[in-house]
């Protein structure tokens, strides 16, 4: 599938997909979307990159690292990063649950504040649930991409 059509399409589609994913994450509290969908969508963008350019592209082409041709894919630095990502995601999710405990609320209680008069937005609402959603997002991306890159390499 590493054809020219595929590569050209991927170059255009992947940024769009990523932006849509991020907007789904941020808007998820009020419009359709949320951390899980955004995570899966982001993973899909990565999968498109994988299919169009191959598994090593991210390390070699994007990050500009040398890839040791003899090593097993599960030890790729990218895979290590994915693993770190879902660890970080879990930490964010649990951490966002622990903060209310410190403020004498039950575990995982959420709240929100409304900011008025913010430039550009005028009216901005920040929900603490966004932190939890960010955790969900990170775990989903990290988990799915770990699985896909490792299974794909097989």
């Amino acid at each position: 599938m590493t054809t020219v059509i595929m590569r050209t399409t991927a170059r255009i589609v992947v940024p769009i997909v990523l932006i849509v994913a991020i907007s789904l994450l941020i808007e998820g509290h009020n419009l359709p979307g949320g951390g899980f969908i955004a995570g899966v969508l982001t993973s899909t963008a990565f999968v498109i990159v994988y299919i169009a350019f191959g598994l090593d592209f991210l390390e070699r082409g994007v990050l500009g690292r040398d890839v040791d041709p003899g090593k097993t894919p599960s030890r790729d630095r990218v895979v290590v990063a994915y693993r770190r990502l879902f660890t970080v995601g879990l930490a964010i999710a649990v951490g966002s649950g622990l903060v209310p405990l410190a403020l004498d609320h039950p575990f995982l209680s959420q709240s929100y504040i409304v900011l008025e008069g913010v430039p550009l937005y005028h009216h901005l609402e920040i929900a603490s649930a966004l932190a939890f959603d960010l955790g969900v997002y990170c775990v989903v991306i990290g988990g799915l991409l770990t699985i896909i890159s490792v299974v794909g390499a097989e």
């Binding site: 998820g28 009020n30 979307g33 949320g34 951390g35 999710a93 649950g97 969900v136």
Partner: peptide, 26 residues
């Protein structure tokens, strides 16, 4: 503080469940 009830349920009302699911993914 959200219009999207599904998301509010997932991350607020029933966030403990979601946390469990995250652990499953990990």
């Amino acid at each position: 503080g959200g219009q999207n009830i599904v998301n509010v349920i997932l991350v607020d009302f029933r966030s403990f469940d979601t946390l469990g699911e995250l652990v499953v993914i990990a």
